[in-house]
């Protein structure tokens, strides 16, 4: 048998190793959003703190849309940082209260504070589905022209804000 062929398993091992190595550190639970580069989907929803109804036209970017719920444990640990963002950095944040009980949601805001400009009350979760939400917390970055430029799945903290979200927002402001 040809001696050179003996190198083949080794080469195959290296190639397979590289393919598998490129997958390390990737979170398979994170899905790409289909809405990147698209406008906020049309909706008409009432607010949590008043009976007023708003539509997608009432959202004014650049802003964040933060999907939260009182049943979501990570939302509790994320909330203080959102308070800080809105107070110190003057970031406009819209809340999307996703599939929550109204009383529980009000208690959540009452206890932890309200960093949101407006809180959309999405009790049946249909706006969430239109946004492709599959787990709270999720945060959408909306630019000046109300286009969604990024979706972050999971908690927003200082590291996520400075490394990921802020560059995306600055990118939009530079346009």
């Amino acid at each position: 048998m040809n001696k050179q062929l003996l190198w083949l398993p080794f080469a195959a091992f290296i190639i397979l190793g590289l393919i598998l190595y490129s997958g390390i550190g990737k979170d398979p639970t994170k899905l790409d959003s289909r809405l990147i580069g698209k406008a906020i989907p049309a909706f008409s929803k009432s607010l949590l703190l008043s009976d007023q109804t708003i539509t997608e036209k009432d959202i004014k970017g650049p802003a964040l849309i933060n999907v939260f719920a009182s049943w979501c444990p990570a939302c509790y640990s994320e909330h203080p940082y959102l308070m800080e963002l809105s107070a110190k950095e003057k970031v406009v944040i819209y809340g999307l209260n996703y599939k929550d009980d109204k009383q529980d949601a009000l208690k959540f805001i009452d206890r932890l504070g309200n960093p949101y400009n407006m809180i959309i009350f999405d009790n049946n979760g249909r706006l969430g589905i239109d946004l492709g939400v599959y787990g709270a917390p999720e945060t959408f970055v909306v630019d000046k022209s109300n286009t969604i430029v990024y979706r972050h799945v999971g908690e927003v903290n200082e590291r996520v804000w400075t490394n990921i979200i802020l560059p995306k927002m600055l990118g939009t402001e530079g346009q």
Binding site: L31, D32, R34, I129, D130, L131, G132, Y134
Partner: peptide
């Protein structure tokens, strides 16, 4: 569904 959640 694919418009919202992709091919996944």
């Amino acid at each position: 569904l694919k418009d919202r959640y992709g091919d996944f």
